[in-house]
Amino acid sequence: MSTPTPSPTAVVNGEPYALAAGTTVDRLVAELLPGCVVDGAPQGVAVAIDDAVVPRSLWPTTTVEPGARVEVVTAVQGG
């Protein structure tokens, strides 16, 4: 996991994810979920980095650091 690689990566939903320099949370979510962006704001999605929720208001200013463990979740059928 900590092996150095030419391009920095994070782990997004359990898979390696190549990071462009300065990738912010809102950009990451827009890349993952182009369909859920309504009026510029993804709906029904939440993000945690290293087990801490990143509030939506902080998405544009929160940079995903190399090695970060990112979870991007949404509501699905269940329960």
Binding site: V12, N13, G14, E15, L32, L33, P34, V45, A46, E71, V72, V73, T74, A75, V76, Q77, G78, G79
Partner: peptide
Amino acid sequence: TTVAMRRVARP
């Protein structure tokens, strides 16, 4: 109505 929280699928 209940919903579950799960990882989004990457396109």
